[in-house]
Nucleic acid binder design. Structure first.
Lengths: 168, 168
DNA sequence: CAAGGCTTTCATTTTTTATTGAAAACCCTG
DNA sequence: CAGGGTTTTCAATAAAAAATGAAAGCCTTG
């Protein structure tokens, strides 16, 4: 088989092309706080022309049962990986959803939004606290709190825009 | 001193207002991969109405010499903290630069941009590798690689726009 | 130019996060 | 509905990241 170091049936080594893709996704997903194993799984599925069973992911990436199962679960929760039924095989097979925006939108939904909401509550509490300060300090405190508020508003204005841009 | 649990000279406890600010920055800076101690330092400086020496940061946040020194170094490298000279005191004093966009721009410069550049190199290598594949596989591979390329371009188009939005 | 305060560095320790794999749970399927 | 393949869970372990603090380096200044 030209240019291939394994049979097409699902060997246990990684092709150079696969390695490139995997490294790339490890790097990008690390950016949003995802562990290496998740990047590996998504990277391999992304370049794979056919759905892969968990067993093959474990064998080719040399990761454990637990890491494979948990990584797939997480990726499914993002919508970044889909389950596909393979006739005549009891095992689930997985495919990458190529819509990369899912990572960004999940990140915004799971990480960014909740933090912003908590931050807004904090800002309110901070304003209340600053009320009971002596004139001088209060002025300084309010100035800074206003700054925070300003940034939160800016972020909140930006988010839907980014979403729209991402979701095509 | 009304509403204050310490003297203004620099005690060793944290006010409720300070705690709110610190927790908030710990949370946000964690998002871009910065350790807790960095969030603590920036948070305290952000609400402080006067420049603080490293010694006071250590005492009030209960962090070590090393953490304080390294955190300040990092924050200075972002431009998020500035050194201020305090007459009659040999110690450096630090103030928070209130321009929060510095965190975002540093993140883009230090984390995002380099990764995108490496990714573009990878994509080129992947295209070269895909050339030597049998018809069927090659078609599938190119389709996926194109998808990656598309996202990189989208990202590259988006970045300067975000920058402009951030830097006011 | 030496003494001493202030800051940085970095090997070690602690804490946090990710991975492993055995056991439990969950199906199909005959 | 029992047997056996597949997947999930989770306590234990390993790996990675952050914090510590002693020692080295750097200045100021007397």
């Amino acid at each position: 088989m030209a240019g291939s170091s394994q049979t097409s049936g699902g060997g246990s080594t990684l092709e150079p092309l696969e390695i490139e893709a995997i490294e790339m996704f490890i790097n990008f997903l690390k950016l949003i706080g995802l562990p290496k194993s998740v990047g590996e799984i998504y990277g391999l599925l992304f370049v794979s022309p056919r759905p892969l069973p968990m067993e093959e992911l474990m064998a080719r990436l040399q990761i454990s049962l637990g890491a494979a199962s948990q990584g797939l679960k997480l990726l499914r929760s993002f919508g970044a990986v889909k389950v596909v039924y393979s006739p005549g095989d009891r095992r689930d097979h997985y495919v990458a959803d190529l819509e990369l925006s899912r990572f960004a939108t999940s990140f915004i939904r799971d990480e960014l939004k909740p933090r912003m909401e908590r931050a807004l509550e904090r800002i309110e509490r901070m304003e209340a606290m600053a009320q009971g300060m002596p004139e001088e300090e209060r002025k300084a405190a309010f100035q800074r709190i206003e700054r925070l508020k300003h940034w939160m508003e800016r972020g909140q204005k930006m988010m839907p825009w980014i979403m729209k841009f991402l979701v095509n």
